[in-house]
Structures are given as C-alpha cells and as structure tokens.
C-alpha cells in the first residue's frame, strides 16, 4: 500500500506541470495583459480619450514609445518564447517565489496570504455546518424512513438545493439585512472591530457570517444528507445487522456499532478534498456580501489580467486538489479494511 501512495505522490508532478503549462500558455494567447492595461492607464492619465482608444491597439500613437513597450515586455518576460518563460516561472515557483502582482505590485504570495483567514473561516464553518447537519440528519431520516419528518426534511433540503446560492444570498440580504435590519449588509467584520472585546469580536464575526454562511450551505445539504440516508438504509438492510440483532443486540447499538461505520465509507471518499477549503469562496456570494475572499480575488485577477496572481492561485489550488484526492484515498483505506490499494490482494 505504501508503494501505491508513493506512486500517487510522484504522479502529482506531471499532473501539476500539465495543468500549469496549459493555463500559462492560455494567458499568453488571450488578448489583453498588463502592458495593454498600462498603456490604457497612461493614455487615460493624459486625459486624451482618442489616444486611449488607440492605445488599445497597443501600437503606434500610444502614450508610450516602442522602446518603453519593449522594456516592459522584457520586464514581464513577454519577449521570450512562451515555454522559456514558463520554465523560468516554474523555476521561481520551486523556490517558493510566485512573482509579483502586476496590479498591486505586491508579492503574489502576500496578496494570497491576506485572504487566508477569511477563506479558512468560511471554509471551516461551511465544513462543520455541512457535516454537522448532513450526517445526523441522514441518520435520523434513514431510521424514520417515510415518516412526516423524513418527507418534510427532504422537501427542505431539495428546495435549498434547487435555488442557486447567489439567489439565496440576495434574498437573505434583502429580507434580513435591508428590510428587517437584523444582520449587517456585508463585510467580514465591523469598522470598530479592533475596539471590541474578545467576546465582542467573536460575536461580531458570527453576526457578519450568518447570512453568507446560510447562502453557502443552503444548497449543500441535499447531496450529502441523501448519500448518508441511502447508504445507512442499505446497511440497515444488510445481513450483518440482522446477525448483530440475532446475537441479542438492541437496534440502536446495531445501528451505531455496525451499520454506521459501513455507511460512512461513501462519505469518506470525498473527505480528503476538504483540504481545498482554504481556497473556497464563491465570487458571487463574496460580491453580494462584500467579503474579500478567494472567489473575488480569483475573479478580479482574471478580469484585470493579473496573470501572476492567476497562476499563483492555480498553483495552490492544483496542489491542494491533487493532495486532497490522495487524502481521500487514505481515508477510504482507513475506514474500509477491504480496500488494499495496489497490492495483489483484492477486495471482494
């Protein structure tokens, strides 16, 4: 099994190179970029709109001379063939240098790092809410299959699932923040956050987080709740549960000691990918609630052609995704003794 995981870790290297090459080449192929943006800004600063529009062509008659443009191209590495600059970029990444943001002129790593607290907070909170609600709810629904509770909760989770989360966000914002004024209109913390006491800070964060969290999670209950419910029902009908009861065990203990662990196996298959939660954040929800998270950063860096940031986010998310998959496999191997990766001994 160890050799299997070593092989999986080694496979990260070619996958990572494939992903980054693809995106790196794309950033060269699509029109627009830091130089065009700079030309535009220079033209705008000159106040001459006619020149600004010609600046879009990136050629003669612009605010910058050809020499200056060539200098800029050299500065950004656009003067070299794409694969050469890719190798240069990769060399820097290997020594943990993600480059400098063309928009903020700050190191990319610092720009990304700033968003971590917000994204980790929402990621962990969403994770706890989703697992904390779905697993118990699925268990109760499985045991009370076809009762009123089961039917009503199914209707609710599917209702949440059917509505796009940004619509939920706008609805919550309009009702509870704008109309009833129970919650703030947006932001991660209040303006006077640093003046608050320790407990006041916690309350302030939670107060701001309530509506965005509801918007994030409203749609995420359905899948895992139904997965948990169906998986537990399958296992409750399994013969080994009957064996346990035939031994003299009561139903509750048979459910928790025998059926539950088996029914968690399908849920474990996706558990490792939670490592990516530090990069979570839907740009629409962040936009609606005015939260400075990863969704917004990723989206804005794309719109602004801030390619070092785009590539920086890609590096981190690709790595986390690849490692998350391996972690999921490890989780499955931990909960299911029949799973033996890579050796001749096969599961039945």
């Amino acid at each position: 099994m160890t050799s299997y995981f070593v092989r999986r870790f080694l496979l990260i290297v070619p996958t990572f190179i494939g992903v980054t090459v693809l995106v790196f080449v794309l950033t060269r192929l699509v029109p627009g970029g830091p130089i065009e943006r700079m030309l535009q800004e220079a033209a705008m600063a000159g106040g001459d709109f006619a020149e600004a529009t010609s600046g879009y062509d990136g050629l003669g008659g612009s605010a910058l001379s050809d020499d200056q443009i060539a200098e800029l191209e050299a500065y950004y590495g656009f003067d070299k063939p794409v694969l050469v600059s890719y190798v240069e970029w990769l060399g820097k990444v290997l020594v943990l240098d993600l480059g400098t943001s063309t928009r903020y002129n700050d190191p990319v790593w610092d720009t990304i790092k700033e968003r971590f607290p917000i994204s980790i907070f929402y990621g962990v909170a969403t994770l706890i809410l989703t697992y904390g609600v779905c697993i118990p709810l699925g268990i109760v629904k499985a045991i009370r299959h076809k009762t009123a509770f089961d039917n009503v909760s199914s209707a609710l989770v599917f209702f949440g699932y059917a509505i796009p989360n940004y619509v939920v966000g706008i609805g919550l914002l309009a009702l509870f923040a704008a109309h009833l004024e129970w919650f703030p209109l947006g932001g991660f913390v209040s303006d006077d956050f640093y003046a608050l006491s320790g407990f006041g800070k916690v309350v302030d964060v939670l107060w701001h987080a309530t509506l965005p969290l509801l918007a994030y999670t409203a749609g995420s209950f359905a899948v895992m709740t139904m997965l948990m419910k169906n998986s537990l029902m399958d296992n409750l009908a399994a013969e080994y549960v009957r064996t346990a009861i035939a031994k003299g065990m009561n139903f509750r203990r048979a459910v928790f000691n025998h059926a539950l662990r088996n029914s968690l196996i399908p849920i474990a298959t996706s558990f490792g990918s939670n490592i990516s939660l530090i990069l979570t954040g839907s740009f629409l929800i962040e936009k609606i609630f005015n939260i400075d998270g990863f969704g917004l950063l990723g989206f804005e860096s794309l719109v602004e052609r801030d390619y070092p940031v785009v590539m920086g986010i890609l590096v981190i998310s690709a790595l986390l995704f690849l490692i998350g998959n391996i972690l999921s496999d490890i989780c499955v191997a931990l909960v299911d003794p029949r799973v033996r990766f890579g050796s001749g001994e096969s599961a039945q």
Partner: peptide, 24 residues
C-alpha cells in the same frame, strides 16, 4: 427477548459472505 435471542436461542444464516460485518 434480547436476553433469550443469541443467548438461549441462536441462529445462523444462509449467506456467510454477507452475514458478518465486513469492517470489523
């Protein structure tokens, strides 16, 4: 009944493949 079941009266089943818990 639970004190009798599995204690005074025990039962074995047709399918030994599925009658045991696979993860214990």
């Amino acid at each position: 009944m639970r004190a009798i079941r599995g204690n005074r009266i025990a039962m074995i089943f047709q399918e030994p493949m599925t009658a045991l818990n696979p993860v214990q």
